[in-house]
């Protein structure tokens, strides 16, 4: 797989193909699998993503601790006019839905991780469904997202314990932004700018879940991560470029993660987890989990 997005963009543009194509070719070469076989596996992931969205929107799930649940249904069922357009509201609802399913031990696709699993399916299927884009194009978009995530894994990290939430929902926002930009007709270069634009907006984001559970703020951070991805897509498709190349933005995320205090890396020692209310809720809910 590629170790820089710049190389992937150069290859795609030299061949006159998309990032999805060079990603599938590289995966096929690395793993000794046919492109059809890889697409089939991505199609299965897509079906699970759609299943999780549908399941979460029902609104009857509560997390293990009872801290989160029901909010995807709340936003999807809001009958007031959307503040920023119907697809925006729809994408937020889908991101919450997947993450509520995850918190309730439902089946999701960890893409790139379970804690950041809401962003990518919400952005990709939300935008595709709004425009009547079919599953083949979504599978290509997943390949592009996988390429971006692989570069992040190589150059920085995809683990909140290592790099904070910027490495989970932040990386997911970059993956979603680049993949959706290409899905909506952007060039590989535009997709790369979308990655940079999304990821710059999440630099420094800490991982501070109450009680160490993948619940609060994780569920909401997937929704705000999706919103950042949408902003990046809108800018990139308008031809806006970001002066710092995506690879260097990703490296910066890795550097910040390495320098981030351990309290902000999934240990529940800092951030929202360490607030008076955060500590109280975690104490109460952990007792409840032990009883259940």
């Amino acid at each position: 797989m590629y170790k820089t997005l710049a190389d992937a963009v150069r290859d795609a543009e030299a061949r006159g193909v998309r990032l999805a194509d060079v990603a599938l070719d590289a995966e096929s070469r690395d793993q000794g699998r046919t492109v059809a076989d890889i697409r089939h596996a991505l199609g299965r992931a897509l079906a699970v993503m759609r299943g999780a969205i549908e399941r979460g929107l029902v609104g009857d799930l509560m997390s293990n601790s009872g801290l989160v649940g029901g909010d995807a249904h709340r936003i999807a069922g809001n009958t007031a006019a959307p503040v920023a357009g119907a697809p925006f509201r729809d994408v937020l609802g889908r991101a919450l839905a997947v993450q509520e399913v995850n918190a309730a031990m439902g089946v999701i696709v960890a893409a790139p991780t379970a804690g950041g699993a809401g962003v990518l399916p919400a952005v990709l299927t939300g935008l595709a469904d709004a425009r009547g884009i079919g599953d083949d194009a979504l599978i290509d978009a997943l390949a592009t997202a996988g390429l971006i995530g692989a570069v992040v894994a190589e150059r920085a990290s995809l683990s909140g314990a290592e790099g904070g939430c910027q490495a989970e929902t932040g990386a997911a926002a970059g993956m979603a932004a680049g993949a959706a930009t290409e899905m909506l007709g952007g060039t590989p270069t535009q997709a790369m700018h979308a990655v940079a634009l999304a990821q710059q907006g999440t630099l420094g984001l800490v991982c501070d879940p109450l009680g160490g559970l993948v619940e609060l703020p994780c569920v909401f951070r997937n929704a705000t991560g999706a919103a950042i991805a949408l902003a990046a897509i809108e800018m990139a498709l308008a031809g806006i470029t970001f002066a710092i190349p995506a690879d260097e933005v990703i490296d910066t995320m890795g550097d910040i993660g390495r320098e981030m205090d351990v309290r902000y890396r999934e240990t529940a020692g800092g951030g929202l987890a360490a607030t008076p209310t955060g500590r109280r809720l975690a104490r109460e809910r952990l007792v409840q989990i032990k009883r259940s």
Binding site: M1, D30, L42, N102, V107, I108, P112, G146
Partner: peptide, 22 residues
């Protein structure tokens, strides 16, 4: 070597890829 399918996956029961799937 990082695989696409490691990034878009695994399909798993939540809530944590390290604490549950692993």
């Amino acid at each position: 070597m990082v695989s696409l399918l490691d990034i878009i996956g695994p399909v798993m029961v939540g809530p944590s890829s390290s604490h549950t799937a692993g």
